[in-house]
Amino acid sequence: MTLREGARKLLEEKSVQGVLGYKRGSLPFRTRPYLFRNPQEVEELVFTPFCGTNLARYLLRLPGDFGKVAVVAKGCDSRALTVLVREHQLKRENLYILGVHCPGMVDWRKLAQWKDLKESEVAFEEGTILIRGVPHPLSSFLEASCKRCRYRSPLEYDILLGAEASPFPFEDHLAALWRLPKEKRWEFFAQELSRCIRCYACRNACPMCYCKECFAESHKPLFIHPSPTLRDNFVFHLGRAMHLAGRCVECGACERACPLGIPIATLFLAVAEIVREHFAFEAGASVEAPAPFVTYREDDPNAFIL
């Protein structure tokens, strides 16, 4: 069964109130989230390597009495759903997870150097992307978070649809950053964060940022000034990194959303990596594993915990 058939069936049977998926956008290679409400619309449902938006974000905005909703989920989306269910933001029984194998998400900005490129001029083959017939390695077009993705297929789903995607090499771009001395790392982040205009696109695209009032916009107390100084940009992004420790599902939604192309996911991926290393925990990878920051164990092996 294809994704479209699966979605159509759910809507025809009325077993869900809507299917949250992607449809083609107004620009080549862009897709946009859409809530499909009736079976006729499903013709427009797509799943391409340009469907990076983490849809879990949109589930949080549905009215409380919406009822059951189906959602198209890649690996990272399913991880986000798992965390949100565990944090009581979503009810699992109200979700129908349409799992799809993720082919790896392509950064549409990297295609901008081909002028007037049409969607029909781009094709994907095992590990390569064909642009106007010329093959290029797919990995150099992937989004940073996808290059080091461990869970391309969803871990939690009600039905898994579509063909399994071909593998691509795991590329850890963080490793190079880790190897740098502390000062150099600071310099890297300082340089990137000095460009931040604090439009909050990263935060608003993040499936895990659902606070009713973000600390960044709080007036009482005022944590950061609304104007983007490097200092306050650091406080904002580091504050978010702390809030996301043990919760970040490594989807890269933040980086994809940044209008200035700041590689902001690096920060969050690094925090996720630390959590993985010290707590052997990956957010949303398991429905049961205890979340590190809300779990107390007397026999905790870490010496810094009393």
Partner: peptide, 25 residues
Amino acid sequence: AWGCLNCGACTFLCPTCFCFDLALE
């Protein structure tokens, strides 16, 4: 309005959006 994330990317990059805040430091 459905799909909009309510971030400020559009307004901050817009050449005509002029709204500003006066905030004490």
